[in-house]
Amino acid sequence: MNGESVVFWITAIFAVVGALGMIVSRKAVHSALWVAFAMVNLAVLYFTLQAPFLATTQIVVYTGAVMMLFLFVLMIVGVDSSDSLIETLKGQRLLATFFGLAFGGLLLSAIASTVALRNNGLDVANGDYGGNIQGIAHLIFNRYLLAFEVTSALLITAALGAMVLAHRERWTPRKTQIELSRERTHTSQVTPLPNPGVLARHNAVDTPALLPDGSPSQASLPQQFRETAQNDDASKEVTS
Protein backbone atom coordinates (compact mmCIF):
# COMPACT_ATOMS: atom_id res chain seq x y z
CA MET A 1 0.00 0.00 0.00
CA ASN A 2 1.91 3.01 -1.21
CA GLY A 3 1.03 6.68 -0.89
CA GLU A 4 -0.77 6.80 -4.21
CA SER A 5 -3.27 4.10 -3.27
CA VAL A 6 -3.87 5.64 0.16
CA VAL A 7 -4.76 8.93 -1.49
CA PHE A 8 -6.84 7.11 -4.07
CA TRP A 9 -8.98 5.27 -1.53
CA ILE A 10 -9.62 8.41 0.49
CA THR A 11 -10.43 10.78 -2.38
CA ALA A 12 -12.28 8.17 -4.46
CA ILE A 13 -14.66 7.45 -1.58
CA PHE A 14 -15.12 11.18 -0.95
CA ALA A 15 -15.79 11.83 -4.64
CA VAL A 16 -18.45 9.11 -4.78
CA VAL A 17 -20.01 10.41 -1.55
CA GLY A 18 -20.07 13.88 -3.09
CA ALA A 19 -21.74 12.61 -6.26
CA LEU A 20 -24.37 10.67 -4.24
CA GLY A 21 -24.95 13.64 -1.95
CA MET A 22 -25.63 15.79 -4.97
CA ILE A 23 -28.44 13.47 -6.08
CA VAL A 24 -29.88 12.90 -2.61
CA SER A 25 -29.89 16.50 -1.33
CA ARG A 26 -33.24 18.24 -1.30
CA LYS A 27 -31.86 21.78 -1.37
CA ALA A 28 -30.33 23.03 -4.61
CA VAL A 29 -27.52 24.84 -2.78
CA HIS A 30 -26.55 21.68 -0.90
CA SER A 31 -26.43 19.78 -4.21
CA ALA A 32 -24.13 22.43 -5.66
CA LEU A 33 -21.85 22.11 -2.61
CA TRP A 34 -21.67 18.34 -2.95
CA VAL A 35 -20.66 18.72 -6.60
CA ALA A 36 -17.94 21.18 -5.64
CA PHE A 37 -16.71 18.69 -3.02
CA ALA A 38 -16.61 15.87 -5.56
CA MET A 39 -14.72 18.10 -8.02
CA VAL A 40 -12.03 19.00 -5.48
CA ASN A 41 -11.52 15.32 -4.74
CA LEU A 42 -11.22 14.56 -8.43
CA ALA A 43 -8.61 17.30 -8.68
CA VAL A 44 -6.57 15.62 -5.93
CA LEU A 45 -6.80 12.38 -7.90
CA TYR A 46 -5.46 14.17 -10.98
CA PHE A 47 -2.54 15.40 -8.90
CA THR A 48 -1.62 11.88 -7.87
CA LEU A 49 -1.97 10.77 -11.49
CA GLN A 50 0.75 13.29 -12.40
CA ALA A 51 -1.56 15.68 -14.23
CA PRO A 52 -0.96 18.83 -12.16
CA PHE A 53 -2.14 21.20 -14.89
CA LEU A 54 -5.43 19.36 -15.30
CA ALA A 55 -5.89 19.30 -11.52
CA THR A 56 -5.42 23.05 -11.07
CA THR A 57 -7.59 23.96 -14.07
CA GLN A 58 -10.26 21.59 -12.73
CA ILE A 59 -10.36 23.60 -9.51
CA VAL A 60 -9.98 27.06 -11.06
CA VAL A 61 -12.49 26.57 -13.87
CA TYR A 62 -15.04 24.09 -12.52
CA THR A 63 -14.99 24.56 -8.76
CA GLY A 64 -14.01 28.21 -8.79
CA ALA A 65 -15.94 29.61 -11.73
CA VAL A 66 -18.69 27.26 -12.96
CA MET A 67 -19.98 26.03 -9.60
CA MET A 68 -19.61 29.50 -8.17
CA LEU A 69 -21.86 30.88 -10.91
CA PHE A 70 -24.39 28.12 -10.16
CA LEU A 71 -24.34 29.12 -6.49
CA PHE A 72 -24.67 32.73 -7.50
CA VAL A 73 -27.83 32.03 -9.48
CA LEU A 74 -29.28 29.83 -6.72
CA MET A 75 -28.67 32.54 -4.17
CA ILE A 76 -30.27 35.20 -6.35
CA VAL A 77 -33.29 32.96 -7.01
CA GLY A 78 -33.85 32.82 -3.29
CA VAL A 79 -32.93 31.00 -0.13
CA ASP A 80 -36.33 29.48 0.50
CA SER A 81 -37.73 28.95 -2.97
CA SER A 82 -39.32 25.51 -3.09
CA ASP A 83 -38.70 22.99 -5.84
CA SER A 84 -41.33 22.68 -8.52
CA LEU A 85 -42.55 19.10 -8.82
CA ILE A 86 -44.31 19.54 -12.15
CA GLU A 87 -42.37 18.42 -15.17
CA THR A 88 -42.55 21.07 -17.83
CA LEU A 89 -40.45 19.30 -20.46
CA LYS A 90 -42.34 16.56 -22.26
CA GLY A 91 -40.72 13.13 -22.15
CA GLN A 92 -37.60 14.37 -20.41
CA ARG A 93 -37.28 11.24 -18.28
CA LEU A 94 -37.12 9.03 -21.33
CA LEU A 95 -34.62 11.26 -23.08
CA ALA A 96 -32.54 11.62 -19.92
CA THR A 97 -32.37 7.84 -19.49
CA PHE A 98 -31.40 7.37 -23.12
CA PHE A 99 -28.66 10.00 -23.13
CA GLY A 100 -27.40 8.91 -19.73
CA LEU A 101 -26.99 5.33 -20.92
CA ALA A 102 -25.41 6.51 -24.16
CA PHE A 103 -22.91 8.67 -22.29
CA GLY A 104 -22.11 5.78 -19.94
CA GLY A 105 -21.48 3.55 -22.92
CA LEU A 106 -19.19 6.13 -24.46
CA LEU A 107 -17.19 6.44 -21.23
CA LEU A 108 -16.96 2.67 -20.82
CA SER A 109 -15.68 2.17 -24.34
CA ALA A 110 -13.10 4.94 -23.88
CA ILE A 111 -11.84 3.43 -20.62
CA ALA A 112 -11.88 -0.08 -22.10
CA SER A 113 -9.81 1.05 -25.06
CA THR A 114 -7.10 2.51 -22.81
CA VAL A 115 -6.98 -0.70 -20.79
CA ALA A 116 -7.16 -3.14 -23.67
CA LEU A 117 -5.02 -1.42 -26.27
CA ARG A 118 -1.28 -1.11 -25.85
CA ASN A 119 -0.18 2.40 -24.91
CA ASN A 120 3.19 3.96 -24.51
CA GLY A 121 2.77 5.15 -20.95
CA LEU A 122 3.11 8.50 -19.27
CA ASP A 123 6.88 8.84 -19.47
CA VAL A 124 6.96 8.59 -23.22
CA ALA A 125 4.03 11.00 -23.62
CA ASN A 126 5.58 13.55 -21.29
CA GLY A 127 9.10 13.02 -22.56
CA ASP A 128 8.33 14.10 -26.12
CA TYR A 129 8.11 17.79 -25.32
CA GLY A 130 9.96 17.96 -22.02
CA GLY A 131 7.07 17.85 -19.58
CA ASN A 132 3.39 17.44 -18.94
CA ILE A 133 2.43 21.10 -19.49
CA GLN A 134 4.57 21.46 -22.58
CA GLY A 135 2.96 18.30 -23.97
CA ILE A 136 -0.56 19.65 -23.36
CA ALA A 137 0.40 23.00 -24.90
CA HIS A 138 1.78 21.25 -27.96
CA LEU A 139 -1.39 19.20 -28.44
CA ILE A 140 -3.75 22.15 -27.95
CA PHE A 141 -1.88 24.64 -30.10
CA ASN A 142 -0.83 22.32 -32.88
CA ARG A 143 -2.88 19.20 -33.41
CA TYR A 144 -6.17 20.34 -31.88
CA LEU A 145 -5.84 24.05 -32.67
CA LEU A 146 -9.00 24.15 -34.81
CA ALA A 147 -11.10 22.32 -32.21
CA PHE A 148 -9.72 24.61 -29.50
CA GLU A 149 -10.57 27.77 -31.44
CA VAL A 150 -14.02 26.48 -32.43
CA THR A 151 -14.76 25.68 -28.78
CA SER A 152 -13.68 29.14 -27.68
CA ALA A 153 -15.80 30.73 -30.43
CA LEU A 154 -18.75 28.66 -29.19
CA LEU A 155 -18.22 29.83 -25.62
CA ILE A 156 -17.96 33.47 -26.67
CA THR A 157 -21.12 33.11 -28.75
CA ALA A 158 -22.91 31.68 -25.73
CA ALA A 159 -21.74 34.56 -23.56
CA LEU A 160 -22.82 37.09 -26.18
CA GLY A 161 -26.17 35.33 -26.50
CA ALA A 162 -26.72 35.56 -22.76
CA MET A 163 -25.89 39.25 -22.88
CA VAL A 164 -28.29 39.86 -25.76
CA LEU A 165 -31.08 38.02 -23.92
CA ALA A 166 -30.50 39.98 -20.75
CA HIS A 167 -30.03 43.29 -22.55
CA ARG A 168 -32.57 46.04 -22.08
CA GLU A 169 -32.62 48.98 -24.46
CA ARG A 170 -32.25 52.37 -22.80
CA TRP A 171 -34.78 54.89 -24.04
CA THR A 172 -33.23 57.86 -22.32
CA PRO A 173 -29.54 58.61 -21.84
CA ARG A 174 -28.15 57.55 -18.51
CA LYS A 175 -27.92 60.36 -15.98
CA THR A 176 -24.42 61.18 -14.87
CA GLN A 177 -23.44 61.76 -11.27
CA ILE A 178 -23.22 65.52 -11.93
CA GLU A 179 -26.74 65.62 -13.36
CA LEU A 180 -28.13 63.59 -10.46
CA SER A 181 -26.60 65.87 -7.84
CA ARG A 182 -27.75 68.93 -9.75
CA GLU A 183 -31.31 67.63 -9.88
CA ARG A 184 -31.20 66.90 -6.21
CA THR A 185 -30.03 70.38 -5.23
CA HIS A 186 -32.76 71.93 -7.37
CA THR A 187 -35.58 70.24 -5.44
CA SER A 188 -36.96 71.70 -2.24
CA GLN A 189 -35.62 68.78 -0.17
CA VAL A 190 -31.82 68.56 -0.44
CA THR A 191 -31.16 66.79 2.83
CA PRO A 192 -32.52 63.31 3.68
CA LEU A 193 -36.14 63.24 4.85
CA PRO A 194 -36.63 63.60 8.63
CA ASN A 195 -37.33 60.45 10.65
CA PRO A 196 -40.81 59.95 12.07
CA GLY A 197 -41.24 61.09 15.65
CA VAL A 198 -38.38 63.61 15.71
CA LEU A 199 -39.15 66.26 18.37
CA ALA A 200 -42.69 64.80 18.66
CA ARG A 201 -44.21 63.27 21.77
CA HIS A 202 -43.93 59.69 20.50
CA ASN A 203 -41.36 58.01 18.30
CA ALA A 204 -43.89 55.62 16.76
CA VAL A 205 -43.59 55.14 13.02
CA ASP A 206 -46.92 56.88 12.34
CA THR A 207 -46.13 59.99 14.41
CA PRO A 208 -44.92 62.78 12.12
CA ALA A 209 -41.75 64.65 12.97
CA LEU A 210 -42.14 68.25 14.09
CA LEU A 211 -40.53 70.94 11.98
CA PRO A 212 -38.68 73.83 13.71
CA ASP A 213 -41.85 75.92 13.63
CA GLY A 214 -43.76 73.14 15.41
CA SER A 215 -45.86 71.98 12.46
CA PRO A 216 -45.90 68.22 11.71
CA SER A 217 -43.97 67.08 8.63
CA GLN A 218 -45.89 64.60 6.48
CA ALA A 219 -42.70 63.86 4.54
CA SER A 220 -41.27 62.12 7.61
CA LEU A 221 -43.88 59.36 7.48
CA PRO A 222 -43.80 56.19 5.39
CA GLN A 223 -46.03 56.39 2.32
CA GLN A 224 -48.94 54.42 3.80
CA PHE A 225 -49.23 56.65 6.88
CA ARG A 226 -49.16 59.94 5.02
CA GLU A 227 -52.26 62.09 4.94
CA THR A 228 -53.24 61.95 1.31
CA ALA A 229 -55.79 64.32 -0.22
CA GLN A 230 -58.49 61.73 0.43
CA ASN A 231 -57.54 61.42 4.09
CA ASP A 232 -57.48 65.19 4.35
CA ASP A 233 -61.06 65.40 3.17
CA ALA A 234 -62.09 62.64 5.54
CA SER A 235 -60.43 64.28 8.54
CA LYS A 236 -61.97 67.63 7.65
CA GLU A 237 -65.38 66.04 7.59
CA VAL A 238 -64.78 64.46 10.98
CA THR A 239 -63.53 67.68 12.58
CA SER A 240 -66.24 69.87 11.08
Binding site: V40, P52, F53, A65, M68, V79, G131, N132
Partner: peptide
Protein backbone atom coordinates in the same frame (compact mmCIF):
# COMPACT_ATOMS: atom_id res chain seq x y z
CA UNK B 1 6.84 23.08 -5.59
CA UNK B 2 5.50 21.65 -8.81
CA UNK B 3 5.36 22.78 -12.44
CA UNK B 4 2.08 24.74 -11.97
CA UNK B 5 2.37 26.04 -8.43
CA UNK B 6 1.26 29.60 -9.32
CA UNK B 7 -1.93 28.17 -10.79
CA UNK B 8 -2.30 26.18 -7.57
CA UNK B 9 -2.36 29.49 -5.69
CA UNK B 10 -5.18 30.70 -7.95
CA UNK B 11 -7.04 27.42 -7.45
CA UNK B 12 -6.84 27.61 -3.66
CA UNK B 13 -7.94 31.25 -3.75
CA UNK B 14 -11.00 30.27 -5.76
CA UNK B 15 -11.93 27.65 -3.15
CA UNK B 16 -11.46 30.29 -0.45
CA UNK B 17 -14.26 32.34 -2.03
CA UNK B 18 -16.65 29.54 -1.08
CA UNK B 19 -16.12 30.34 2.60
CA UNK B 20 -17.37 33.89 2.19
CA UNK B 21 -20.21 33.08 -0.20
CA UNK B 22 -21.50 30.23 1.96
CA UNK B 23 -21.24 32.34 5.12
CA UNK B 24 -23.44 34.92 3.43
CA UNK B 25 -25.96 32.36 2.25
CA UNK B 26 -26.10 30.24 5.41
CA UNK B 27 -26.69 33.21 7.72
CA UNK B 28 -30.28 33.34 6.46
Amino acid sequence: DFPVSVLYVLAIASIGIYGIVLAGWASG
